[in-house]
Amino acid sequence: MNTTHLSRRCALAALGAAAFPRLRAQGARQRRPITWLVGQPAGGTTDVLTRLVARELALQLEQSMLIENRPGAAGAIALQATAKAAPDGLTLVTVSGPSLASIPRPQIARELTAVAILARGPMVLVGTMATALPPTLDGLLAAARENPGAFSYATSGTGSSQHLTGELLNQIARTRIVHVPYKGGSQAVTDVVGGQVPLGMLGITPVLPHIKAGKLRAYGVSTATRSPLLPEVPSLHEAGLSDFDADQWFVVAMPAGAPTDRVQALNAAINRALHAPEVQAGYTSAGVVLTPATAQQTTAFVARETQRWQTLAKNANLQLD
C-alpha cells in the first residue's frame, strides 16, 4: 500500500473566519485524517489529480489527508473499501469513468454518495510508426472497413473509458477494430510504440512524449474540441465522425449515508481547491479541465454517463468480463 500524508497548516484569513466552520470543528474534534482512496497505481492520472487537490484541501480544512492507493479489479477494491467505511465524512474515493463491469460493484447513488467532479479530459487515437499504417484518419478507417478484424487497438482495460470510446469509434465509423485490453495504460503505450498493437485509444499524457518524438501518430482526440496539449491534432468529430464526443472523468465520492451538510461542505472546499494556482497548473500539464459542480449535479452527471455507456455496451454486445 502506497500512502502519503499531506498535512499543511496555515491561517485561513483569505477564506474568512466563518468558512467551513463545521468541517474545521469536526477536524479539530476528531483529530483524525481524511483517508482518500485511489483505485489505480501511484503515478497515474487518477493518482496525480487526487494528490493535487488533496494538498489544497488539507490546507483549507487544516486537517491531514492520507492518500491510499488500492489498485486492482479495475478500481473495484477501492470502491468496495469506501462503501464499507463509516459514513462520517472521513473517507473519500476517486471514481474514474466512464467504466462498466460485468461483476456488480459499488456505484454512486447506491453504495456511494457523489461529492464533486475533479476533472474531465480527452483521450487520443494513436497509431504506431513502427509499422506501415495509413497516415490519415480517413485512410485508416477506410482500410479498417475493407479489412474487418485486421486492425486492433490497445487500452488500459476492459470496460474502461478508453475501451468504451474505442467501441464508440467502431459504432460511428462502422468498423470492427479489435480491442486489446491491458492491466493499466503503461504497458499498453509501450506495446503500441513497439508495434505489437498497431493502434491505441489512450490518455494524452502518457502518449504525448512519443507523439512529439515521432514514434506515434495522433489521428484525433475524443472530445468535440481539440486539446491544448495537441493543438494541431483535430478532434474525431472535426475529422468527420459527426457527434463523436467522449471524455474520461474523475469524480470524488464517499460512503452512502454521509450527512448532507458534510457532503455540501466538502463539495464547496473541493471546488475552491480546484481554482488554486498549483492545481490549475497541474491540470494544464495533465491535459484535463476542471469542471466545478454541486454534489447533486455530480450525481446527475454520473447517472447520464452510466446510462449512455450502458446503452452503447448493450447495442454493441460488448463483453465486459
Rank of each mutant, 00 (worst) to 15 (best):
residue 53 V to C: 00
residue 29 R to M: 03
residue 74 A to P: 02
residue 118 L to P: 02
residue 98 P to G: 00
residue 129 M to G: 01
residue 105 R to W: 10
residue 121 G to D: 03
residue 87 P to S: 12
residue 65 M to F: 12
residue 64 S to V: 12
residue 94 T to W: 11
residue 45 T to I: 03
residue 57 L to Y: 06
residue 58 A to T: 08
residue 145 R to G: 15
residue 34 I to K: 09
residue 34 I to P: 11
residue 82 T to V: 01
residue 130 A to E: 08
residue 139 G to R: 15
residue 26 Q to C: 13
residue 41 P to I: 00
residue 43 G to P: 00
residue 80 Q to H: 13
residue 123 M to R: 14
residue 116 A to V: 06
residue 30 Q to D: 12
residue 28 A to V: 10
residue 38 V to W: 05
residue 107 Q to K: 03
residue 55 R to V: 15
residue 61 L to D: 12
residue 135 P to I: 13
residue 75 G to F: 01
residue 97 G to L: 01
residue 131 T to Y: 12
residue 28 A to T: 12
residue 67 I to A: 04
residue 66 L to W: 10
residue 149 G to Q: 13
residue 155 T to Q: 06
residue 39 G to T: 08
residue 55 R to Y: 14
residue 50 T to W: 07
residue 49 L to W: 04
residue 45 T to V: 07
residue 122 P to N: 00
residue 100 L to S: 04
residue 48 V to H: 08
residue 165 T to M: 03
residue 110 R to I: 03
residue 163 H to F: 10
residue 97 G to M: 06
residue 66 L to Y: 09
residue 166 G to T: 02
residue 61 L to N: 07
residue 63 Q to F: 09
residue 119 A to C: 07
residue 95 V to Q: 13
residue 81 A to W: 08
residue 135 P to D: 10
residue 113 T to N: 01
residue 87 P to Q: 13
residue 156 S to D: 12
residue 62 E to F: 09
residue 106 P to N: 00
residue 165 T to R: 06
residue 68 E to V: 12
residue 132 A to R: 08
residue 116 A to Y: 09
residue 52 L to E: 04
residue 115 V to P: 15
residue 66 L to F: 05
residue 139 G to P: 14
residue 114 A to C: 00
residue 37 L to S: 07
residue 65 M to N: 01
residue 98 P to E: 05
residue 63 Q to C: 13
residue 99 S to F: 08
residue 158 T to A: 10
residue 104 P to A: 02
residue 81 A to S: 03
residue 165 T to L: 02
residue 161 S to F: 03
residue 119 A to I: 02
residue 52 L to C: 02
residue 118 L to A: 01
residue 145 R to W: 15
residue 124 V to Y: 13
residue 97 G to R: 02
residue 47 D to F: 11
residue 138 D to P: 02
residue 145 R to V: 14
